[in-house]
Design a binder for these strands. Structure first.
Lengths: 337, 337
DNA sequence: TTGTACGCGTTATCAC
DNA sequence: GTGATAACGCGTACAA
């Protein structure tokens, strides 16, 4: 992996490294002829400036670090696409990392990202992250940080999320309006910030329609492989007439569990998912969903972060942007459809 | 982002930077007491060595670059999980990048990865990449490279793929054995290496069962948003009794198209997908699939690359490892099920 | 218009 | 047992 450097060019052309450097950066003070010579030679040798040396010198890298709990999740991979689109246009490279829902890995990954002089950090917290002290420290050291989706109120940085409250409200309201009253809610782990908001939206809808909230109809499911099944069993004990699943994974888990038990959707049970799965309309019957604006979340978060990096915005603002969700009705929750 | 360096420690403790460096690296020649002092102080100030400086000095980074066409694809994200598991255990960080099916972005991304002194490159080629000269150059500069899934025979580097021939053979054979004879094949773009192998597997199965190969029953579909629909239309003109879809995306596209046209699966048409989608058994009827061993591909590829990096294997070997696929029968292709 | 010298953070080499 | 120095590749203040 022998790389060609500015020195090599200088030596070959009998110039000093500074002249070469300036010529390559098209400095006004360099003779046109010299410039041509240098640029031509550099071109021919495929010279590429060493970003590592630059990072060391300038203490920055034009790289944005992105840390998500998992990549094998359409929501997060779409967010990343949004991030990349914006970052690329504004001249930043994006490095992607996974925390695998582990606090320790998240910590280690973020430290690595920081040590490598990422100019900013976009992060969605792992479900096991309760302590964000390490992020606060970084923030105090002036590292630009923007949280998205899985955010934390203990951290005074900008955050970008879907409007989870409104989304959950719309989902629940839709179920109620189509005649359901005992709506079970399979929620994501309570440690995740947005779990609360989705729960709140669910409760608010019930309240608005005069339906009492029953704790027994709500269960949180973690990320274990076989967690959803027994939870659905338990919830079925409560004789629900609908399920509101709070994520892709849980929606699929519920569908599978209900199918195993030969429960007809939507005849016996209506199901609505807070998701991004593309196959919702392939199911029979198709599933109504609350679509998360993943791409837009990524775009907005990246834009916000880059503004922060480039000092275009006050760094101490703690705005939390909420991107609207979209209720996509696919007939499944229309009673008896 | 003020970071604490070895210099700071040296100054504070009235030592030289070299002493501090040695103390931190637990060098035998340093006084125990001095060591203790240094280590303690470093601990207290949360000193972290600067990997950028190390990379500059040592011309390596303990980072593996991974480039995939897209992340929003369960196959690739699972491969990445396999890669990470192995890399992490062997002390490497993994940086993930997308080429977005564009040759230009792939090229730019790889250059960036190389410029940042990644110790090795794991790459699955974009569908628009016909020219791998740039990779050959890197290989000649001794950069360890391992290809996976979308490989190239024009490149003499190790490659890891699913056994696409056997998988396609098994899928086609299954359709034949369940009574189908006019099997349409919706293939991935012909530029992608594995398209050929899947096609070959399909043809071999036909041949073995004495069914003539018909060109009109095979169509390649690109990545455009509305490409699959008209192709399915065309294929239906040929009165097929089965579809073999060569990827997740295409399987879903076929299902959607057939559903739109009110064609019953599997009564009128049997469908089999070469995929990794987790919802195959939620469909009604469930879809039989050829499962790709994504996780294992990632693990094997990463292991192979790290062996290369660490010189444990001859760098010029051009082994191409094929990981077995698995035919998962979910009743859909059983005629009349 | 061009060249010299320095510093970014680290470690290896050589000196004391 | 410890310190000074050079080197990795680059850009720039300063000198010529």
């Amino acid at each position: 992996m022998d790389t060609i450097t500015i020195k090599d060019i200088a030596r070959a052309l009998n110039l000093s490294t500074s002249t070469v450097s300036r010529a390559l950066r098209d400095s006004y003070e360099i003779n046109t002829e010299t410039k041509r010579l240098v640029v031509e030679y550099a071109e021919r040798l495929q010279y590429r400036p060493n970003p590592i040396a630059l990072s060391l010198k300038e203490n920055r890298s034009r790289v944005i670090g992105v840390v998500v709990p998992q990549i094998a999740n359409l929501f997060f991979s779409q967010v990343i696409n949004g991030i990349e689109a914006v970052a690329y246009n504004r001249g930043y490279h994006v490095s992607i990392f996974q925390s695998h829902e582990s606090y320790e890995r998240e910590l280690a990954t973020v430290q690595q990202v920081v040590a490598r002089k990422a100019d900013g950090l976009l992060i969605s917290l792992s479900s096991n992250t309760c302590n964000v002290a390490y992020l606060r420290q970084l923030q105090e050291k002036k590292l630009p940080i923007v949280l998205f989706d899985r955010v934390s109120k203990d951290l005074e940085v900008p955050s970008v999320t879907a409007d989870n409250f409104a989304g959950a409200f719309a989902a629940t309201e839709h179920l109620i309006q189509t005649g359901r009253r005992r709506i079970a809610h399979v929620a994501i782990p309570a440690t995740i910030s947005i779990a609360q908001e989705r729960l709140a939206g669910y409760r608010a809808a019930l309240e608005q329609y005069g339906i009492p909230y029953e704790e027994k109809l709500v269960r949180h499911a973690g990320f274990g492989p076989n967690e959803v099944d027994p939870i659905v069993d338990d919830l079925l004990q409560q004789k629900p007439d609908a399920f509101f699943a709070a994520s892709d994974r849980l929606a699929i888990g519920c569908l599978t569990a209900l199918k195993k038990r030969n429960i007809l959707i939507p005849r016996q049970i209506a199901l609505i998912g807070f998701t991004n799965i593309t196959v919702a309309d392939l199911l029979d019957p198709p599933m109504t969903t609350v679509e998360q604006p993943a791409l837009e979340i990524g775009q907005v978060a990246a834009g916000r972060l880059i503004d922060l990096i480039e000092g275009k915005q006050n760094a101490v603002t703690t705005d939390s942007l909420k991107i609207p969700t979209r209720l996509v009705i696919r007939a499944s929750t229309k009673a008896g459809a």
